[in-house]
Design a protein around this nucleic acid. Sequence first.
DNA 1: ATCCTAACGCAAGGTGACTTGCTTTACGCG
DNA 2: CGCGTAAAGCAAGTCACCTTGCGTTAGGAT
Lengths: 199, 199
Amino acid sequence: MAPTDDPSVPPLRRRGARMRSAVLAATVDVLTEHGLAGTTVGAVARAAGVHETSVYRRWGTREKLILEALAEQLDTAVPLPDTGDLRSDLVGYFGTLASLLATPQGEALLRLSAERDSGLPDHRLAYWTDRLDRGAVMVRRAVDRGELPPGTDPALVIEAVSGPLFTRALISGAPLDEVFATRLVDLVLDGARAVKPGA
Amino acid sequence: MAPTDDPSVPPLRRRGARMRSAVLAATVDVLTEHGLAGTTVGAVARAAGVHETSVYRRWGTREKLILEALAEQLDTAVPLPDTGDLRSDLVGYFGTLASLLATPQGEALLRLSAERDSGLPDHRLAYWTDRLDRGAVMVRRAVDRGELPPGTDPALVIEAVSGPLFTRALISGAPLDEVFATRLVDLVLDGARAVKPGA
DNA sequence: ATCCTAACGCAAGGTGACTTGCTTTACGCG
DNA sequence: CGCGTAAAGCAAGTCACCTTGCGTTAGGAT
């Protein structure tokens, strides 16, 4: 029951809209500059020229705040290529993903997605599962084209390539670049192309 | 220079040793029962019948405490198989790893290893990098046996299998069992066996 | 132009991680 | 057997996350 449902009036930027943008922008700024651990609610509120309580009232937790700020800024990334050649598709897709994960924002987004203990049950999962499900489409197309055997599990191929990327971002800290992504794609693709002996 | 090196006297449980065991045992108990988020230093201290300050003096941070408790309890897991057949080795190794990651303790250990923001620079990495490096030995042996082409990168093979396991434990929450581990091993192994065309 | 209300500011408080200075006591050594 | 010391208890305090009740004001509605 919003009191401003009438479509005849302009966007009607209430006080809240400006405050919201200011805080989200400040969140990304602080995050980029001071890292995930340095991104305290107080620091963000200070940077946005807003009271801490207002942030908590609107977003509830530090986590939701950062998640929303990142989602707002990153949701155009990682397009789905369709070049007609699976290897090209995957190299492009996962190369972009690796570059994204190498940025402070990408790493923060992944890191927050990994924190399952507190509060939200699966909201943060949406971002990554969505991207991986969409990625499986590329593999499915290749199976239809005959590039891969019919028994291929698209989800397994996607998991096999993305998993090591995530692991480098979250745990080992080893370099995350297109070279690594390409080597993974080649390894997994060669495996998928092999004709299974037993079955 | 421990003051009790003399082997003629019994274990000589000083006040500290009993306190240490009590706290570490209590940590695992609390962890198993209340999860990682519910494992507060106060709760552990209370369960061990010890003052909170003593815990902080000995372990410094909550993180180090849990890490030490888990390492103490888990360090006998994941032996390195050597069956003479790489697939058997890998299926055994990663099957055990998957089972470990499926337990609350294993997941907590991995989760703590992923928190790189605060304090310690690489201490928690030791556990997993050590295990993965040791895993690479299995692949190297297989290359020597001629099971895999000489150009094979053992670390890449290990990363390709372990990465998806870690990702399921940390992010997707999808089932972590021997079946999944086996399918990954087969996929990656088929890829590694394929003769690279370009090179 | 004026009023109403939701959004914001503010202050105070609760919890958990972590620290510090001081007291007390259990060890184990002489 | 007592004595010195290091380890443990204790109390108080800081900082960040998060909550709550109440006052204040900006905005749109009338």
